[in-house]
Design a protein around this nucleic acid. Structure first.
Lengths: 351, 351
DNA sequence: AACGGTCTTGACAACGTTGTCTAGGCGCCT
DNA sequence: AGGCGCCTAGACAACGTTGTCAAGACCGTT
């Protein structure tokens, strides 16, 4: 291959193959032991004389040998000690915390985590799942609920353990963990009513998201359930990504008639921030609001934003633990864990 | 093993081995073709009659066969098409964006990303690197600079491609990508001087972090270089994680003598936020400041915070591209890419 | 009818590792 | 001296896949 004398084979296309890793055979040759003895030393199995083990260890150190875990797992037929995580993106604080919590649990159990972002593209999510299962991950955490990834469920081969975050799966057998989205917006509405608001509106987000739809459901049911609230509030719903213009349009339509809106519930971080920016550039507008999802700045901006906080850390932890229970073989029926939200009262509720 | 007749072997301890994946041998049996023919069909190799291919495809679909990429890569001796990323944690916006950018590049090239958090623990970082290389990742992105992870360099086997983020490696041969930390704080000092400040202080962070030390260097050199600045400023440096008390102590010491401090540079997000909170609870204190690292709330809080913004996305992209260049075999000398920072002028500079 | 060529197919070895089994060496007993 | 058991060590097959090579079927040509 790399013999200098062989000028004819100069058309070598290989990109200078990374330094080939030494194998157990190399270690065996170098130490004068047999392949199997090396394997025993590497795995700390008994039945090797200290002298021999020492010789092998020296060869291992000299060659910089490191066992090829892939080959080992193939031979053993053991699990790959890895899980795959599909998330929407990395940079949202919710997903970032989620990933962190999952990885922490995985690491504690000696597992590695493969991660990929779906970025709102169902096909990309499907490709990720395929790549993960082709590497025989022991399980999947699917946290891609922004777009409608429901087709994804069918891409997950039966028998593959999967836990869905923030959305149940269409497959009956998969566990799921999510925030109490409906309860969250209900609490938000209650809070605004307690502060004296009776005419509300809902500043939504992507209507295809399962999470957002649940939050909307919570808003609607809370509004309908409370006779003190102006029934018009049920229809005062503006979905879709928001910017100054869309908010301005919604606002003017909701305040043009009688009984104008005095308080809003925003469906996610982005909507909350869009509203805050809108209010910055329209200081004449006064409105109470509660945002879904906490954010670092919420207590720093003025007025400090009252939010429905999700416990991303707990969600990730529970999801990972559920997954590892499945991996361990627990055969119980699918669980659907709902993690409570928490209303963090600050100042933006009153107007 | 699983023969029903053998009652003696009932002490099977295996936790109900996940559904065993079907192998090419199973597909071959089911379709009446040979193992090699199945392999050809799976890999789209020519030389299979359409009728045969059709039969094999049907068997693949029926059994739900999916190729074991691990075995395939072992046999081919090819790369694992995966990279490992060590980051400090997931939830910081900088690391989250970094990871997102790296994963995007990796995914575009058909690579999968393994990720783990070092969480300030050098040993944990070392274990991650070991686990990654044991799985024969094609390269590493090391973005763990908060604590002193410099021992980590020696854990990376020679020949393993690695790109260091936010800190060069002690190994001479590794590429690195980082923000222009020194230039960033220099720009911050210049900005404050332009606004009329002449007596400054530096609110630092973990002094073991390479990044933080570079930012401090930038502060020191900028202060020394400008005769208009009170030389006392060079010593007005408070490292370590900050809270209300540590900031209060620094502040009172820096304003007790003559020529009291009128403006601060903060070394990272956390320090900036600690300062903002401190100023919230001490409305009588007026001080100009510039923070290192942008954050979502910076433009929303009042006064909007002037920051030195890092381009995490670009850093991640460049780091990943550098890594893939190495993987492709580019043998050039190690590169140390410095990504410029950008001063985003808002209102917190003037006091 | 015999030959050469192309096309399709399959047998076999090998990737790096580990489980199983057997071969020696040694000490201890009768 | 012979037999037994223990300890250490190695030969070999196998995990699931792919590269190599050869065998056979079929075609058209001489």
């Amino acid at each position: 291959m790399t013999t200098l004398s062989n000028g004819a084979a100069a058309s070598e296309p290989a990109p200078e193959r990374s330094r080939q890793w030494p194998t157990m055979v190399d270690v065996a040759r170098a130490s004068g032991a047999s392949l199997k003895t090396v394997s025993r030393v590497v795995n700390g199995e008994p039945g090797v004389r200290p002298v021999t083990a020492e010789r092998v260890q020296r060869a291992i150190a000299e060659l910089g040998f490191q066992r090829n875990d892939g080959a080992s797992m193939l031979r053993r037929g053991s699990s790959t000690a890895s899980i795959g995580m599909v998330l929407e993106d990395f940079s949202g604080p919710f997903y970032a915390m989620l990933a962190g919590a999952v990885e922490r649990v995985a690491r504690d159990r000696g597992y590695l985590m493969l991660t990929g972002a779906a970025e709102n593209d169902p096909e990309r999510a499907a490709r990720l799942v395929a790549a993960f299962t082709a590497r025989r991950v022991d399980g999947l955490i699917v946290a891609a609920s922004r777009a409608d990834h429901s087709d994804l469920d069918d891409c997950i081969p039966a028998g593959t353990r999967a836990v869905f975050v923030d959305r149940p799966s269409r497959r009956g057998d998969a566990d799921s963990v999510s925030s109490d989205n409906e309860g969250g917006t209900r609490a938000a509405v209650r809070h605004l009513v307690d502060l004296g608001h009776t005419s509300l509106g809902f500043l939504g987000a992507d209507e295809h998201s399962w999470t957002i739809r649940r939050r909307l459901d919570g808003y609607r049911s809370a509004v309908r359930a409370d006779p003190a609230i102006d029934p018009q509030s049920v229809e005062r719903i503006a979905m879709g990504p928001h910017d100054d213009d869309t908010i301005a349009a919604a606002w003017s339509s909701w305040t043009s008639g009688d009984n104008p809106v005095t308080a809003l519930v925003t469906a996610n971080n982005r909507a909350t921030l869009a509203l805050v920016r809108f209010l910055r550039s329209h200081p004449e507008i006064r409105v109470g609001y509660v945002g879904f999802d906490d954010f670092e700045a919420a207590e720093l901006i003025q007025p400090a934003v009252t939010v429905i906080a999700q416990d991303a850390d707990e969600i990730g932890r529970r999801a990972a633990e559920l997954l590892f229970d499945r991996i361990a073989g627990t055969a119980a029926a699918a669980q659907h864990v709902v993690i409570p939200t928490r209303l963090i009262q600050r100042d933006s509720g009153r107007r």
